[in-house]
Simulated scan of single mutants.
Amino acid sequence: MTSNPDWTMFLSSSRALQASSRDQGTQDHAMVAFVGNLLPIVSHKASYQRLLQQRGGQAQLLIDNLQLALQAHRWVDAQKETVLKATLRLSKVTGLLPTSYRLPEIEVTRRVYEAPCVDIYRGAVGGRVVCLKKYRSCYLDAAGIHELMSREAVIWANHPHTGILPFLGVYQNGSGVFDSGLYLVSPFMEHGTITEFLASFPGVDRRLLLKDIADAISFLHHHHIIHADIKGANVLVSSGGRACLADLGFARLTEAAVLTWTSIQSTVCLGTVPWQAPELLQVQRSGGYVVPTAASDVYALGCLAYEIFTNKPPFWNIREGAHSATRAYQIIKAVVKYDERPQKPSNGSRAFRLHGLTEEVWSFMAETWRRDPQLRPSAAEVS
Score class of each variant (00 low, 15 high):
residue 220 L to N: 07
residue 226 I to M: 08
residue 213 I to V: 13
residue 239 S to N: 14
residue 220 L to I: 11
residue 219 F to N: 03
residue 230 I to T: 03
residue 243 A to I: 09
residue 244 C to S: 05
residue 235 V to W: 01
residue 225 I to Q: 11
residue 246 A to N: 00
residue 242 R to F: 13
residue 215 D to T: 08
residue 225 I to N: 12
residue 235 V to A: 03
residue 235 V to P: 00
residue 212 D to G: 06
residue 216 A to W: 04
residue 238 S to P: 07
residue 242 R to G: 13
residue 246 A to K: 04
residue 235 V to D: 07
residue 217 I to E: 00
residue 242 R to P: 12
residue 232 G to C: 07
residue 236 L to V: 01
residue 220 L to C: 11
residue 225 I to F: 13
residue 243 A to L: 04
residue 233 A to Q: 00
residue 222 H to C: 10
residue 216 A to N: 01
residue 240 G to W: 12
residue 226 I to F: 09
residue 213 I to M: 13
residue 226 I to C: 07
residue 230 I to H: 06
residue 246 A to F: 00
residue 220 L to W: 10
residue 234 N to S: 08
residue 240 G to H: 14
residue 243 A to F: 10
residue 229 D to F: 08
residue 226 I to V: 15
residue 221 H to S: 10
residue 212 D to K: 00
residue 232 G to A: 06
residue 236 L to S: 02
residue 231 K to I: 01
residue 243 A to M: 08
residue 234 N to C: 09
residue 238 S to R: 07
residue 215 D to P: 05
residue 245 L to T: 00
residue 232 G to Y: 04
residue 215 D to S: 11
residue 241 G to I: 01
residue 237 V to T: 09
residue 216 A to V: 01
residue 221 H to D: 04
residue 229 D to Q: 11
residue 233 A to V: 04
residue 224 H to Y: 13
residue 232 G to M: 02
residue 240 G to C: 14
residue 233 A to H: 09
residue 233 A to E: 07
residue 214 A to D: 04
residue 227 H to V: 07
residue 217 I to G: 05
residue 240 G to S: 15
residue 221 H to I: 07
residue 224 H to N: 14
residue 244 C to F: 02
residue 229 D to K: 02
residue 215 D to L: 14
residue 234 N to T: 02
residue 239 S to K: 14
residue 229 D to T: 06
residue 246 A to G: 03
residue 241 G to L: 02
residue 245 L to Q: 06
residue 219 F to T: 06
residue 217 I to M: 11
residue 246 A to I: 05
residue 230 I to C: 03
residue 246 A to Q: 02
residue 226 I to E: 02
residue 226 I to S: 02
residue 243 A to N: 08
residue 217 I to Y: 04
residue 221 H to E: 08
residue 239 S to L: 14
residue 233 A to P: 01
residue 218 S to Y: 05
residue 245 L to E: 08
residue 230 I to E: 05
residue 220 L to Q: 13
residue 213 I to S: 12
residue 222 H to K: 14
residue 215 D to E: 12
residue 245 L to D: 01
residue 212 D to A: 01
residue 214 A to C: 09
residue 238 S to V: 13
residue 234 N to D: 11
residue 246 A to V: 00
residue 238 S to Q: 05
residue 241 G to D: 08
residue 222 H to R: 15
residue 232 G to E: 03
residue 240 G to L: 13
residue 232 G to P: 05
residue 231 K to A: 05
residue 225 I to L: 15
residue 242 R to T: 14
residue 223 H to P: 13
residue 245 L to A: 05
residue 215 D to A: 09
residue 245 L to P: 01
residue 241 G to E: 00
residue 222 H to T: 15
residue 241 G to V: 02
residue 220 L to H: 11
residue 218 S to F: 04
residue 241 G to T: 04
residue 244 C to H: 14
residue 230 I to N: 06
residue 226 I to K: 04
residue 242 R to Q: 15
residue 217 I to P: 03
residue 217 I to W: 03
residue 229 D to Y: 11
residue 239 S to E: 14
residue 216 A to R: 03
residue 220 L to A: 10
residue 236 L to I: 07
residue 232 G to R: 00
residue 242 R to H: 15
residue 215 D to C: 09
residue 225 I to D: 08
residue 235 V to S: 00
residue 241 G to R: 05
residue 237 V to P: 02
residue 229 D to L: 01
residue 245 L to F: 10
residue 240 G to V: 11
residue 212 D to F: 02
residue 221 H to K: 14
residue 222 H to Q: 15
residue 212 D to S: 06
residue 243 A to V: 09
